Amino acid sequence: MTTARVLVVGSINMDLVSYSERIPGVGETVLGKRFLTVPGGKGANQAVAAARLGAQVTMLGAAGTDSHGEQLLKHLQQTGIDISHIKQVDTSTGVALINVDSKGNNQIVVVPGANFAITPADLEAREQVFANADVVVLQLEIPLDTIGKAIDLANKYQKPVILNPAPAQPLPEEWFAKVDYLIPNEHEALLLGGSPEDGYLALRSKVKQNLLVTKGEQGVFYATGETAEVIPAFKVKAVDTTAAGDAFIGGFSVALAEGKNLKAAIIFASAVAALSVGKEGAQTSLPARTEVEQFIGGCEL
């Protein structure tokens, strides 16, 4: 099997995670049980997920020159990710403030920091990494004009574009015709104009080819052309859902780059996501390839 080459353009954060019985309401204080500082950022999470599954991963992004930045770059490099194209800037590294309740639900505030220092010009200067990739993976924790440039460079070299439109926000209309795999969760799909009542028809009419809506324990809705289907989720007990979406994207990108068909790629990615919710943290919960293969072999949808 040829090694998948995955390019991730996205965010690098340090996650500050608190665990409590429940997530506090507005103006409320609750007593926490534990606190962790762990590597995160949607881009870095997806890159680590792909690397642990055996892909050759290159990351494009930005980190600060502070201690968080140094720790995160070292961690990414130790995971086997090519960090030579990550820009370091004299500002704070991005952070995510994450509250997790006893049921594994989470609430997240992201402070971008250095992540907003990655520019279209930075991508143009590193154009060759797009030519060398099998797939290009994007999210929305870096500037939109930089993401737009990444989409255009991927299109230039005819590389499949996977866009995870998170955190939820409106997208430039011209992107829909350029993105090969649009993968929102239910909330993000609604914001983009899709409704589950009609099978997300309005959103399906705009996408270039493939729409995948991740629905947690309800599985994954996917539509390509006239075909639409729901792939059920693997049945697992959730401990922490923080990295589930990123685990899915990482798994899907690897499966796609390895040549799996769409349905097989979704099932593989769903297994990666299912394993991730059984552990705490973001990158700390992402499974190795052997774990995923053993899980799929011994688990039913």
Rank of each mutant, 00 (worst) to 15 (best):
T2N: 14
A4Q: 10
N13S: 09
N13E: 07
L16I: 11
E21M: 02
E21N: 12
I23S: 03
P24M: 11
E28F: 04
G32Y: 01
R34M: 09
F35I: 10
L36G: 00
P39Q: 10
G40P: 07
G40F: 05
K42E: 03
Q46L: 03
Q46S: 06
A47L: 10
A47T: 06
A49N: 06
A49H: 04
A49T: 09
L53E: 03
M59V: 08
L60P: 01
G61W: 03
G64Y: 04
D66M: 11
Q71L: 13
Q77N: 14
Q78S: 13
I83W: 00
S84I: 09
H85R: 15
H85Y: 14
I86A: 07
Q88H: 02
D90H: 12
D90F: 01
S92R: 14
G94I: 05
G94Q: 08
V95I: 15
D101I: 04
D101S: 05
K103H: 14
N105T: 03
N106M: 06
I108W: 08
V110E: 00
I118Q: 00
D122Q: 07
E124W: 05
A125P: 00
A125H: 12
N132K: 14
N132G: 02
N132V: 02
D134Q: 07
G148C: 12
G148Y: 06
D152S: 15
A154M: 11
P165M: 09
A168F: 01
P170G: 05
E173D: 15
E173W: 01
V179P: 12
D180C: 04
I183R: 13
N185L: 09
L190K: 15
G194T: 09
G194E: 02
S195G: 00
P196F: 04
E197I: 08
Y200D: 06
Y200M: 11
R204G: 12
V207W: 01
L212F: 01
V213N: 07
G219N: 10
F221P: 05
V230R: 08
K235G: 01
V236T: 09
V236N: 06
T241A: 10
G250W: 02
A257H: 09
A257Y: 02
K260L: 15
S270Q: 07
L275C: 06
A282T: 13
A282Q: 07
L286Q: 12
A288G: 03
E291Y: 02
Q294H: 13
